[in-house]
Design a binder for these strands. Structure first.
Lengths: 251, 251
DNA sequence: GACAATGTTCCTTTAATAGGAACAAATTTC
DNA sequence: GAAATTTGTTCCTATTAAAGGAACATTGTC
């Protein structure tokens, strides 16, 4: 990845600090991103003047509080998030499991919002994080209904667990089944012990494209006892409510 | 505010888009920030290549999903947030009201995390948002225990409601009372109908400075019936638990 | 269908950036 | 405890990227 503009270099620094668990020094950042020490320092100073990075006691840099403000605002700005939030909360309260909203952005599948369940063992996806296409329920939905907005990765399908779909023909079959049933599921295919059932939020009025997906995540045994078919119908109804609220709000 | 570096101009665009409720055009952004149309366009392109801004169907720009990822990560990085989260959740569940964590950053008081209550009418502060110093419970705590990390605004004290403290002598008295009791409260002083009781999280081991504050927010009638003194003691205990977890984790 | 406003691209002057080197703290090593 | 090494910060000038006017393309409007 070749940074071209100064702005992009600064953003690369932000993402690098984001990826690092601990605060980083100027020298280390510069070395990692191929920037001179003085350039790195100047970029960090500019970011610091706007509160996007902070310096700790020892002069090390880490991501700043300004990023939090910008990020949370960006979420609330997404109309689909505003439309979905009450539905997520209602479903999470009714099921006692984590319910979340996922959508495609720039060819990747990203967690937009969540409402967590009550269990001691519960799914807690990170808002803003990316999930794999070929090993998740939402990924299958996007392959079935997304109209090419998301594609399965090129080359070998990464194997996350014993249950991960490895062959493209098997993936195509799973996608076809999702297209037929209208919802998709995933048992241990990404994270062992985690099951997800997801339904697509389709724009009913305009062009009928897929706006997002509503999904419930639970430990596999609990999902088993809840009944996948019943949960699937429930998610379809929830997704329809989100779509109705979205079109009502967006008007 | 005069932008000096290119990076700062780009960040100013981000904050401007963040402040605007709707997507903005290149011309409008440039006019607002004093940038030429072509410069604005180039900065937006750079931000867009890294996913920090997005373009809608009509070519308008708004904040992008990349900011969400950066922001959420930045929050989880704050050790005080990690230490406080279970305490916030436990208190929110026990009280049924919104409990949140607030701290001073760069001289301002900022909401770091929250766990919302269950009421139909409930406080829902925005994570990352700034709250006023002289009209909030946490503001009084920082004036009492913050060691100068936060100061009351210069000039006239802004009047948010009929209950807002207007005179500096009255503010000093409220701060003195907070210093004496160890916790602070706020009834309708910022937002009419909203009451808050807050307790400071003090570093017990090292230098004893104020790390953050734990606060519970509720509609004024409900706070009245819960009993301010009892809630104050409860918040003091919660803040002590946060401090203990913080020092235990940070070790 | 003509007009106005907006997003995008092009090009040259201008000004900010890059990066080496020197300096100052802090940390590590002996 | 002192020397040595690493690291954050500042300074300076050749270089390079950014700024801004103008032309072009596109969209929405009257």
């Amino acid at each position: 990845m070749q940074a071209q503009s100064t702005v992009e270099k600064a953003i690369d620094i932000l993402f690098h600090l984001h990826a690092e668990p601990h605060a980083c020094g100027v020298t280390a950042i510069g070395r990692r991103l191929g920037l001179s020490k003085s350039s790195t320092h100047r970029l960090l100073s500019a970011l610091g003047r706007r509160g996007l990075v902070e310096k700790d006691d020892r002069g090390r840099y880490r991501t700043g509080i300004g990023l939090v403000a910008l990020g949370v605002g960006a979420l609330d700005r997404e109309p689909i998030v505003a439309a979905a939030r009450p539905v997520l909360e209602a479903e999470a309260a009714a099921l006692g499991e984590t319910v979340f909203l996922v959508a495609a952005r720039a060819g990747r599948i990203i967690v937009l919002d969540k409402s967590e369940g009550e269990g001691f063992l519960r799914a807690s996806p990170r808002i803003g994080s990316t999930v794999p296409v070929h090993a998740t329920a939402v990924g299958k939905l996007y392959l079935a209904f997304g109209g090419g907005s998301v594609e399965a990765p090129a080359g070998e399908l990464e194997k996350f667990s014993n249950a991960t779909i490895a062959r493209r023909s098997a993936l195509a079959a799973a996608v076809a089944r999702a297209a037929e049933r209208g919802f998709a599921e995933n048992s241990d295919e990404w994270i062992p012990g985690l099951s997800v059932v997801a339904a697509p939020v389709m724009a009913t009025a305009s062009d009928g494209r897929m706006l997002a997906a509503v999904a419930v995540a639970a430990p596999t045994p609990r999902m088993q006892s809840l009944g996948r078919e019943e949960i699937g119908r429930r998610m379809l109804a929830a997704a329809a409510r989100v779509a109705a609220r979205f079109e009502g709000v967006a008007q």
